[in-house]
Design a protein around this nucleic acid. Structure first.
Length: 260
DNA sequence: TTGATTGTTACCGG
DNA sequence: TCCGGTAACAATCA
């Protein structure tokens, strides 16, 4: 489920619901390491996203670090408490709402130095105002690795996942196997700005939407993409190829995204 | 039961 | 040192 937009959306939402409140924190299906620092009954001082990592800040310099991985899910519901559904590893209980965190890849309490170590290894996040895009360009411009690998490398730039990778490169007519150092600054800036725009739409609509024409109206918002998982290129009607980069499927149109 | 999946990390060899 | 490949882990659904 989670690319960067999911996590940023949760951070913005959970901040409203939990920040400034003393939380009950439990682990119905135990996931905290034995001897982990306790955060239940502490004041939640903020919620923040760094790429796909979600950080709940608490008093005493402690924070809860969540990474949903491929399968994890967040579920918010109103009090009163209901039975946890599925593999709930952490349950955050505020004055009016409950956040259940199902099947996260990472779920740990960090102190300040540990949080610094974590954030230091996460690249500039396209959805963060403080992101330093020059840092991302610096890495990309020096690498011969395919751009399809680099933009999904969270230490190069954070937030893009497998679907956005395919969609962004198609929108910019960049072949996924293009070496990073072949991109000029203009290409990179367009790529960065398209990532920001698409992920912001994702946050707003709570769904991956990369097509230009999104039907208005109140219909249920489902995922709308151009070529991810498709057979026919919507632009040229040609064949969509499916290849692999970094062990994940990437789709491309050889006609619209010519190799360099 | 099998396979696939909007993710990450550790480890190994070139 | 860097880079690419592989395995492992996570949970759910068709």
């Amino acid at each position: 489920m989670p690319e960067g937009h999911t996590i940023h959306r949760a951070a913005r939402d959970h901040r409203k619901v939990l920040a400034g409140q003393v939380l009950g924190v439990s682990s119905p299906q135990g996931r905290f390491a034995e001897g982990a620092k306790r955060i239940d009954g502490l004041l939640c001082t903020g919620v923040e996203a760094y790429g796909k990592h979600l950080i709940y800040h608490f008093e005493q310099g402690l924070s809860l670090h969540i990474h949903l991985g491929l399968f994890g899910k967040l579920r918010k519901s109103k009090l009163p408490l209901s039975e946890p559904k599925g593999a709930v590893r952490v349950r955050l209980v505020g004055p009016g709402h409950v956040i259940d965190i199902n099947g996260p890849n990472t779920c740990e309490v960090l102190d300040e130095p540990e949080l610094l170590t974590l954030t230091a290894r996460i690249g500039p996040d396209v959805l963060r105002a403080d992101a330093d895009r020059d840092r991302a360009y610096h890495r990309i411009s020096k690498s011969k690795a395919p751009i399809g690998r680099l933009i999904m490398d969270q230490s190069v730039m954070a937030g893009i996942g497998n679907i956005y990778r395919t969609e962004i490169l198609w929108r910019l007519a960049i072949h996924p196997f293009t070496p990073g150092r072949e991109l000029n600054r203009g290409d990179f800036d367009r790529l960065w700005e398209d990532a920001v725009a698409l992920l912001e739409i994702g946050v707003w609509r709570n769904s991956i939407i990369t097509t230009e024409l999104v039907p208005k109206g109140r219909g249920r918002l489902t995922e709308r993409v151009n070529i991810f998982g498709k057979k026919v290129c919507p632009k040229c009607k040609g064949n969509v190829e499916c290849r692999e980069i970094a062990n994940r499927k990437v789709y491309l149109c050889e006609a619209c995204q010519p190799a360099v």
